[in-house]
Design a protein around this nucleic acid. Structure first.
Lengths: 238, 238
DNA sequence: TATAATGTTAATATTTGGTTAATGCATTAT
DNA sequence: ATAATGCATTAACCAAATATTAACATTATA
């Protein structure tokens, strides 16, 4: 079975449920490490490399969202699935901002969880594979080569982007027409989320806007208090 | 029947078996396009949108796995079911790596296939829903995207909502035609329940009423001392 | 009709974002 | 060794968006 060697960090304060879920996952050939609260979860995360984190949202001391943020600061790539009993819509947004890859309501169908796990792990691993091929993006009349960090407008000389400029633009493009939450960029690119990194990001947004000015169909819009949104008007993104 | 409009791409080189399977699926109200080899299958896939692909594994020129990979490069979401006479474990693994959603050995019980198809299509569509629909609401002739905080009346330019406007409207919608208690909004949105927050909320209700004026079937009513009630008159909320 | 609750608009306060320039730090070139 | 360069952060100031508070009018209910 292909799940062998895939290591999962499971953080769940309900010991009973946690043990059952752990067994079920191990039966499906995953390697599973169980932590019984956020603190322990973070310690275990730091000590090893995981292919996936499954976090319960409601835990004493440190909730799943907080833990996710800490994990993101250490490692921006590892997939995260939230488990929650809540159905309120607000919480989905919170998870989304923390960089959730998926969301699952308790109680849930274990088959569904298994499917989601497989889908996510595969998606991520194919992303890594294609990452070496898929670093080229078109956005309006621009072309970004995120490996060389070149931004080219039509046939002109490429503009050289700094690492942060490049990462930020790439993230905006990956969320094209959709909200790119501040928090997500800060935890993933800046690896810290405070007043100063936030202002730093604003500076970079200003820089990107300047670069993108030549194409009036491309715009970075702000969604107050939430993040930014890259829109392409006469959009045939291609 | 719910299968109407669901389009299936069936790629099978055994023309006899392919035709029988196609007929059986069409009898169950699926729309079926049959391709007789991998090449033809990929051409047909590119030309249309499908809800599901059923691929025979053993085909001349281009086998099912190769085809699946090509399909995944174009579209990472579409469910794929492999048909195979093989039972070898490696092949199952190969299929999962190519992004299989399910696996079926020939000869098989057609009822089982039908069940699996239904399960997969439903699973996929509910996945999309939990990612998308959480943020989208229809109310009368309006549409609210609570992630981008856009309120759109018919085809007009979206109105941008502030965070509080957005939260309050969302909460009203979630209680549509029913009482939304003052207290609930105050504790959940304002995180405090006193005279001033209460007056603040009244200000926001006034703002929302102004936004909703264009559709005379939509109204926010007050229930004295209790809260508010969003009603849609000729209500086919959709 | 007295009281409390709500409707509404405007003034004010607060938070967040846009932008440019200055600063600090590390790397590279001379 | 020192200067030049590139990059990220921080500071400073202003503008825009949002939220609260005030003020006054209206309505519901006992």
């Amino acid at each position: 079975m292909e799940n062998v060697n895939k290591k999962i960090l499971l953080v769940e304060d309900d010991l009973n449920f946690g043990a059952v879920l752990k067994d079920y996952l191990m039966l499906n050939d995953f390697e599973v490490v169980l932590a019984k609260n956020g603190m322990e979860g973070f310690e275990k995360f730091k000590k090893d490399n995981y292919d996936l984190c499954i976090l319960d949202v409601m835990m004493p001391y440190k909730d799943g969202y907080t833990l996710a943020k800490e994990i993101r600061e250490k490692n921006s790539e590892v997939p995260i699935i939230f488990l929650t009993a809540k159905t309120m819509k607000e919480d989905v947004m919170k998870g989304y901002k923390a960089g959730a890859d998926d969301y699952l309501n308790k109680p849930f169908d274990s088959e569904v969880l298994l499917m989601k796990i497989k889908a996510i792990i595969q998606r991520k691993s194919s992303e890594v594979k294609t990452d070496q091929v898929q670093f080229e993006f078109n956005i309006g009349k621009f072309h970004l080569n995120s490996k060389l960090r070149f931004l080219t407008f039509q046939n002109e000389e490429p503009i050289k982007l700094s690492p942060k400029e490049n990462e930020l633009l790439k993230m905006l493009i990956l969320h094209e027409n959709d909200l790119m939450p501040r928090e997500l960029a800060l935890t993933k690119i800046w690896r810290d989320d405070n007043y100063f990194t936030s202002r730093s990001m604003d500076v970079y947004i200003a820089k990107l806007r300047k670069y993108l000015k030549p194409d009036e169909d491309v715009e970075i819009l702000n969604i107050h208090g939430e993040g930014f949104r890259l829109v392409v008007k006469s959009s045939t993104t291609a």
